[in-house]
């Protein structure tokens, strides 16, 4: 089974890109599945259901979405194997821009949209920096020049990634993306594979349900902000 990890900020067009790319793969119905990692709510499963795409949705709830992803991705692979899938796609939202749910040797795709501002590629961090393919969406509504500048800013952060423009509505560009997906690595399990980048750390009192504000309530790993002297 080929595994592909897709990440990107909320509403960047991940689900649309995945749907169009699955269509462009042209594999038999039911052989490509999706596991969606979200935080609280998601309606994307309806869109996958409509297309008869086997899918599972999981909610991180109060757990850091990144940690939730890494502790469940192996289970996702097991599910895909049992289901007899030939391609499994994991989809997760990089909510804090620090996420990078990428695993060594596993094809990693970052989806960002052109409308999010030219400097966004520079702010996203590991999610963009460690991706193999960066998919840019919503390019059909901005000028050619802005698309080029956006792609340039992506290259400044990740010079080795392939940058592709995909239109999530018409599917333009999904064909090329599908060609890359066809070459993704075949795996049976993820056990013992390594993440490309460390997950955000947080082991403090607020992780375990503390809600009161004040130094005396803070324990564990806390990072203090430094303010200018006044």
């Amino acid at each position: 089974m080929k595994l592909i990890t897709v990440a990107g900020p909320p509403s960047s067009g991940k689900t649309s890109v995945i749907l169009k790319t699955i269509a462009a793969l042209g594999l038999p119905e039911g052989s490509v599945g999706v596991v969606k990692f979200d935080s609280l709510t998601s309606f994307d499963h309806q869109r996958y259901d409509e297309q008869q795409i086997p899918n599972q949705t999981a909610f991180a709830g109060k757990i850091c979405p990144d940690h939730f992803f890494v502790s469940n991705v192996e289970g996702a692979v097991e599910w895909g194997m049992k289901k007899g899938l030939s391609v499994l796609i994991t989809e997760s939202a990089g909510l804090c821009n620090r996420c990078s749910p990428y695993v060594n040797a596993i094809l990693s795709v970052c989806v960002i949209d052109n409308l999010s501002g030219v400097n966004t590629p520079r702010k996203i961090g590991p999610m963009l920096k460690y991706a193999d393919i960066v998919v840019v969406t919503k390019g059909d509504i901005v000028s050619q020049a802005e698309r080029e500048v956006f792609a340039f800013n992506i290259r400044e952060v990740n010079a080795s990634a392939t940058v592709l423009f995909v239109n999530g509505i018409t599917g333009q560009g999904a064909f090329l993306l599908a060609r890359y997906w066809q070459d993704a690595l075949d795996i049976r399990t993820l056990r013992d594979r390594k993440l490309r980048f460390t997950m955000p750390a947080a082991i403090c009192s607020y992780c375990t349900g503390e809600t009161l504000i004040g130094e005396m309530y803070q324990m564990g790993m806390v990072k203090r902000m430094e303010f200018d002297d006044v």
Binding site: N114, L115, G117, V118, D140, V142
Partner: peptide
Amino acid sequence: SQNMNFVM
């Protein structure tokens, strides 16, 4: 295309 705008 006609749909294209500047967003910067």
